[in-house]
Amino acid sequence: MKDDLKVTMQLMKQELKLSWGSFIGLFLYYSLFTVLFTTGFHAQETRFVGLDLFFLMLFIFGPAWFKPKGLQLQKINGKIFASPSTIMGLHLPIKKQVIVLKSIVQYVIHSFPFQLYMLIMLYLISPDVRNTMELDTYISFAIIWLSFGIYIGFSVLTIDVGSSSNNNNLTIVLSSLLFVAILLLILSFPYFFTYGVVEWTIIIAKKWPYISTLLSISAATVGFFYWKKKLMKQLKQIDYL
């Protein structure tokens, strides 16, 4: 593992040299949402459901938005989409374990610091947030979301490693329907469950701060190993034609 990490870092050195623009972009992007959320938390009480949608998106897709050109996902052949750096790694004497590890570390570098920054800033600049939650509650709330960024967020990496896009009409229709259904579920969440997704996490963090923290950290740990295994399996099965 130590050797794998050493090779991962060595490989990432060149990619990180290209990523400064992305880091600035991510910083500005998360800053913008921090400002929006300071008013959004307030609006949540009056059923501003956009908060849930954006919050979820920032903790899942955030890092994918500002990848440097040339490292963004691309079509490898008619069916496979993958990160170019994954393909590059497969052409070189790099263990598949290292390729997976590199994808994970890249995702974490492009997500965790910015998500943490957003959560800290949100607490510091928003009196609304401070009034809603005490510091210990807020720490639980932050851990719930940062963990979510791992056990759900890492799912994005399956595209990074390579995913087969079946282009038949039925698949496209079903995928579109699924996307619309998820969107509707998030938007209608408060109407069915009284509160929105973010507000529910605030309630959970308030009521069960220790249990929710512990469960979130456990889920993140299990999620990390699950996705690592899943990505390895995917890497072994896909035909990179």
């Binding site: 060149q14 040299k17 290209l18 440097p68 050109k69 040339g70 490292l71 691309q74 490898i76 170019p84 750096s85 994954t86 393909i87 590059m88 790694g89 052409h91």
Partner: peptide, 12 residues
């Protein structure tokens, strides 16, 4: 060749 586009020869 996939994945080399953003790098210079020196970086590669």
């Amino acid at each position: 060749i996939i994945g080399w586009d953003p790098f210079t020869g020196e970086m590669l």
